[in-house]
């Protein structure tokens, strides 16, 4: 069970078809850019956003939606936990082996 915090939140999931990390937008659809995510600043709006996400999961669009703590910066929301910013930004390594 994730710890409940007062931090602003965004809602994320993995897209069913390709497993891509997606973020719930203000329009109620999904974006692959965390910058497009709608930031929820209170518990009731976060719960409402999760409700939208769960309905999307029930339509088999995404898998296992959940809320993520973020800090809001000039460029948009940035997940606080390492796991989540890696999900947002991709692997922290050069994912293609060099040579050849």
């Amino acid at each position: 069970m994730a710890r409940v915090t007062d931090a602003p939140k965004v809602v994320t999931a993995n897209r069913l078809q390709d497993g891509a990390v997606v973020w719930l937008t203000a329009a109620g659809d999904w974006s692959i850019r965390v910058a497009d995510a709608q930031v929820q600043t209170d518990a009731s709006s976060a719960e409402a956003a999760l409700g939208i996400a769960r309905a999307s999961a029930a339509r088999q669009e995404v898998v296992e939606p959940y809320a993520v703590d973020v800090v809001v910066e000039a460029t948009g929301p940035r997940p606080l936990k390492t796991r989540e910013w890696i999900r947002a930004a991709g692997p922290s390594i050069d994912a293609i082996p060099t040579a050849a």
Binding site: D18, G19, A20, V21, Q60, V63, R87, P91
Partner: peptide, 24 residues
């Protein structure tokens, strides 16, 4: 949409398919 994730997960795992952070 005929199978939920809970129904599908054991089937995909028996075929070596995981859902990881960024992709399958």
């Amino acid at each position: 949409g005929e199978l939920t994730e809970d129904e599908f997960k054991p089937l995909r795992l028996m075929n070596g398919l995981y859902l990881q952070l960024h992709a399958y």
